[in-house]
């Protein structure tokens, strides 16, 4: 990893190289270099790459945005592309990876009503991994409750991959809760409905929920 660049040096040349990339591979390499610079000035350009329909470059851009952490949240929220669900999926994925609680509202509405299954799936994953340690106890409980409600509603999604992501989101959310918490019981109920008999129509969703229940049971024992 390169050492962090002093904030004074804007990554202008790297952004220029990204603009001038004229092939799919060129764009991928330029995006990787810009992402590795790990400079807040790169965030907006990395967000733009999410809309270029180049999956390799988008992966690199998402990694770069996640590495920037909370500095990338505002650029992501401000530049969400209402017309391109591919781009939204990558952006929601970046927000999910960062786990900043400012993304909560977006994750909720994305899971509830985005037309793109890839967007809903990334949002479900994100709702399980918000970083709450900086918040007060009561604030944490309030945010967790909102995440839980969004995930419980998402458990009825018509796409298997969204239900799969809901199972992972519930697992992570419940691992962070006290088992005396009534909300945990509700979340466990949803996982049991996926894993039970007959359970979810899609075998891989049943298996993922089973795995989540095993992990939660392990945690309860230790």
């Amino acid at each position: 990893m390169p050492s962090p660049t002093p904030a004074a040096t804007e990554p202008t040349e790297l952004i220029e190289a990204l603009r001038e990339a004229d092939s799919s591979m060129g764009l991928l390499l330029a995006t990787r270099r810009l992402a590795e610079a790990c400079h807040p000035g790169a965030a907006t350009s990395l967000v733009e790459v999410l809309g270029f329909n180049n999956p390799g470059a988008a992966v690199a851009a998402v990694d770069g945005l996640i590495a920037l952490g909370e500095q990338a949240v505002e650029p992501l929220l401000a530049n969400l592309d209402g017309h391109n669900y591919g781009a939204r999926a990558w952006a929601v994925r970046a927000l999910a990876g960062i786990g900043d609680v400012r993304g909560l509202e977006l994750l909720e509405s994305a899971l509830a009503c985005d037309i793109g299954p890839s967007v809903r799936r990334a949002a479900a994953r994100g709702l399980g991994q918000l970083q709450l340690s900086a918040l007060s106890q009561s604030e944490q409980a309030r945010v967790r409750q909102r995440c839980l409600e969004a995930l419980l509603a998402g458990a009825g999604d018509g796409e298997w991959v969204v239900r799969y992501a809901v199972a992972t989101g519930l697992e992570q959310l419940l691992l962070g809760m006290e088992k005396t918490d009534g909300a945990q019981t509700e979340g466990l109920g949803a996982l049991q409905a996926f894993a039970g008999d007959p359970g979810d129509d899609t075998p891989v969703v049943r298996l993922r929920a089973e795995l989540a229940l095993e992990r939660l049971a392990d945690q309860a024992r230790n």
Binding site: V161, T202, P203, V204, L207, E210
Partner: peptide, 28 residues
């Protein structure tokens, strides 16, 4: 390639790919 397609492919590996268990539901 898009993650959506990789996820579909991997679902196939999980559900269709347990030769020891042909015809039986995949175990964890």
């Amino acid at each position: 390639a898009e993650n959506s397609l990789k996820l579909m492919a991997l679902r196939g590996l999980v559900e269709n790919g347990d030769p020891a268990q042909a015809g039986v539901a995949t175990r964890l």
